[in-house]
Simulated assay, not measured.
Amino acid sequence: MTMSSTFLQSGCAIGVDLGGTKIEAIVLGPDGAERWRRRVPTPAGDYHATVAAVAALVGQARQELGLHAATVGAGTPGSLTAEGLIKNANSTCLNGMPLQRDLEAALGQPVALANDANCLALSEATDGAGAGAAVVFAVILGTGVGGGIAVHGRVLTGPNGLAGEWGHNPLPWSTAADPRWPCYCGQSTCIEMLLSGPGLARDHQPQPGGPTASDIAALAAAGDPAAQATLERHAERLARALSHVINLLDPDVIVLGGGLSRLARLYDAVPRLWGRHVFAAGAAGQPLHTQLKPALHGDSSGVRGAAWLGRAHVR
């Protein structure tokens, strides 16, 4: 019996979503039904503690479900170099580290690793908001901003592992009102810096210690005009950024995940605004057929995609 067939014996798939603020693990049964799920805080800035936390979660799943064998997939910020090192992660303690190799050593089995936005794209294209669509662009709007592309149910990665790395392009059609903040990647005015949760909070109040993105959403819902203006700026910037995606990729569906995807106003405001910048659309009054949808599986979509990834990788 091969190692691959050993880890497929139970038919269960374990997925891990390694985020900037939380690590989530899930177990999916052979039918895709959720059988187990847990979340723990991410050990901020501590690589070895992060690996240990992932191993502990997977060990807990195995123990509580009595799993002797299950595939494991993990979604992480950034992507893998040809040498197997993490690059471009906004959780900077991961950069330059052999995360896949270290997880495999800690767990004693193969681990499929992919960008977290690619996992979101795979999940939503498989059985989520983009199921049945030819081209799905998936966006994470959270601690960071990322993108993933699924075409006919398969994730695109590219020879450099950069397909969908939308968050580290400059915000298009920039105006004098757009902050020019430097980004950890070495550039400035990156989409991530302006559209992430921390970016929204900083745009609302530049001084540290101000309201978080969720606080601002609550203030806006209560009628606070400053908070409402902040969310309007964010929606307009997101419309510009996504119109660039439509011009390049022309996806059938754009799916939003991450904490800011819960801002219900985005799904009305952004499609009303993006036509101004889509080629030959706004000026000619042509309708746009791209749909903007929230992730069907919500916060669990990325971790579900990681589970699907692990099963496909071992097969």
Rank of each mutant, 00 (worst) to 15 (best):
I246Q: 12
R233D: 06
G259V: 15
N247R: 06
A283G: 13
Y184D: 08
L273I: 00
V253T: 11
N247Y: 09
L263H: 12
L219M: 12
V245N: 04
M193N: 09
I191W: 00
F279P: 02
Q205R: 07
S188C: 05
G285H: 02
W181F: 00
G210V: 07
L249M: 13
G186V: 14
P206Q: 04
L238W: 09
R240H: 05
F279A: 09
M193Y: 01
A220Q: 10
V255F: 15
A217Q: 10
G275D: 05
I191R: 06
V270I: 04
A220K: 10
T212R: 11
A226C: 11
P225L: 09
Y184V: 09
H289G: 07
A239Q: 05
L256C: 14
R240A: 10
P206W: 01
R272H: 05
S188K: 05
I246K: 01
E192M: 05
L260G: 14
T212W: 01
R265L: 10
R276K: 10
G199N: 06
Q187V: 07
Q207S: 04
H234I: 10
E236N: 07
P211G: 00
E192D: 01
G282D: 09
L260I: 15
P208Y: 00
Q228G: 15
V270G: 00
R180E: 05
G223W: 09
L171V: 10
G275W: 00
Q291R: 08
L266R: 13
Q205E: 06
L273P: 03
D268W: 00
S261P: 08
L266Q: 07
E236G: 08
S174Y: 03
A235G: 12
Q228F: 09
L238Q: 07
T290H: 04
P287K: 03
L288E: 12
V255D: 15
P206K: 02
I246R: 06
A222V: 13
G210Y: 04
V253R: 09
